[in-house]
Computed example of a mutant assay.
Amino acid sequence: MLAAKTFSSLASSLPKTLQTPNLTIPPLSSTAKTKPQNPFLTSCLKSSSQAILTETLSTHSTPGPTRVKILSEALPFIQKFRGKTIIVKYGGAAMKSEQLQASVIADLVLLSCVGLRIVFVHGGGPEINHWLTRLGIKSNFLNGLRVTDASTMEIVSMVLVGKVNKHLVALINKAGATAVGLSGIDGRLFMARPSPNSAELGFVGEIANVDPTVLRPLIDNYHIPVVASVAADMTGQSYNINADTAAGELAAALGAEKLILLTDVAGILENRYDPGSLVKEIDIKGVKRMMEDGKIAGGMIPKVNCCVRSLAQGVQTASIVDGRLEHSLLLEILTDEGAGTMITG
């Protein structure tokens, strides 16, 4: 069994080129056998059908036999998920901390290179709050949703689509993968409709339809689409969309193998006041029972509902993952320990 702690230790012991968004992935050439200046050589071979990570590891703190054992134990997980579509929703602590952001980016690149088809969906609440404050616009919330009038919607679009999205694309590209930034408006990816509470919430929308046509050629070529959670209706009016909801609906439309929501808690807790009571795996019936018993409450309810809805539409598993944990994506996908709660159908 590949222990999560051991895998995390390996990830932390890798050279800095894999731990931060400064990872570069040189092309394979006829001089590939020439000893590189950097002792850690990573060649990511990409085509329309595969992405393979080839590693040459030099001596560093983790003994060679240990590294080989860990990598070999990851093989069944790589084989299981290679070629499968994985939707990752990014936000919370992992977005606010530069260290965790670097960890997420490195994980995405590695997963893409071993053949997973990654789609990255993001919000950007803290950044939106920052710019609203700078512009003297007060942030108001109703039941956890941002009240979005016309001026706020303009800032939301500018920050999510023009700033956060392109920043993430640049980091992923710098790390050696190929990212393409989009919003729900592009290619009619998401068609929005007003929220039932639009009188109070303003331009907060729901997703009426998903058309992933624009994403398929990107995914098939192992590019990483980075999707901002903004959409428009038939008239072209923009709406602020909850990023968890956007990720769940997109996972269903793409027939994804797995939906992963990065969040600020360990996952679903048997006792929500006890961080040590993590539920590692649960099915839809179990989740509904916990909601009825009041064990799932507050901000966890919309996340769980998002997961349940995606599972009901054909997604194989949905995980609520602790985004505060370094390399949580690798721990969730490439180990049997996981890094949160996995919900099954």
Rank of each mutant, 00 (worst) to 15 (best):
L45M: 12
K46T: 13
S47V: 04
S47L: 04
S48G: 15
S48D: 14
S48W: 11
S49Y: 10
Q50G: 05
Q50K: 13
A51N: 14
L53F: 08
T54D: 06
T54Y: 12
T54M: 13
T54A: 14
T54F: 13
E55L: 15
E55H: 09
T56K: 08
T56V: 13
T56H: 04
L57A: 09
L57D: 10
S58W: 01
S58N: 03
T59Y: 14
H60K: 09
T62K: 12
P63E: 12
G64N: 14
G64W: 11
P65K: 08
T66Q: 15
T66D: 14
R67C: 12
V68L: 15
V68R: 14
K69V: 00
I70F: 06
L71M: 08
L75N: 02
I78V: 15
Q79E: 13
K80Y: 08
K80W: 01
G83F: 09
G83C: 13
K84H: 11
T85A: 11
I86T: 10
I87V: 15
I87S: 01
I87P: 00
I87A: 08
V88F: 02
K89F: 04
Y90L: 08
G91R: 02
G91Y: 02
G91E: 02
G92T: 02
A93R: 04
M95K: 03
M95V: 00
K96F: 00
S97K: 09
S97L: 04
E98S: 03
E98Y: 00
L100I: 08
Q101K: 15
A102G: 15
V104N: 02
I105E: 01
A106Y: 02
A106S: 15
D107R: 05
D107Q: 04
D107P: 00
L108V: 06
V109H: 01
L111E: 02
C113Y: 03
C113Q: 10
G115T: 00
R117F: 08
R117I: 09
I118F: 03
V119F: 03
F120I: 07
V121A: 10
V121N: 05
G123Q: 07
G124H: 05
G124A: 04
G125H: 11
P126A: 07
P126W: 00
I128N: 10
H130P: 05
H130E: 15
H130R: 15
H130T: 13
W131F: 11
L132V: 02
R134Q: 14
R134D: 07
L135G: 06
L135S: 09
L135Y: 13
G136L: 08
N140F: 12
F141R: 13
F141W: 14
F141E: 09
L142P: 01
N143V: 01
N143F: 12
G144C: 06
G144Y: 06
L145K: 13
L145C: 03
L145H: 04
R146F: 05
R146Y: 03
V147E: 09
A150T: 15
A150K: 15
T152Q: 04
M153A: 09
M153W: 10
I155Y: 04
I155F: 05
I155E: 08
V156Q: 05
S157W: 12
M158V: 11
M158W: 12
M158N: 10
L160C: 10
L160I: 07
V161P: 00
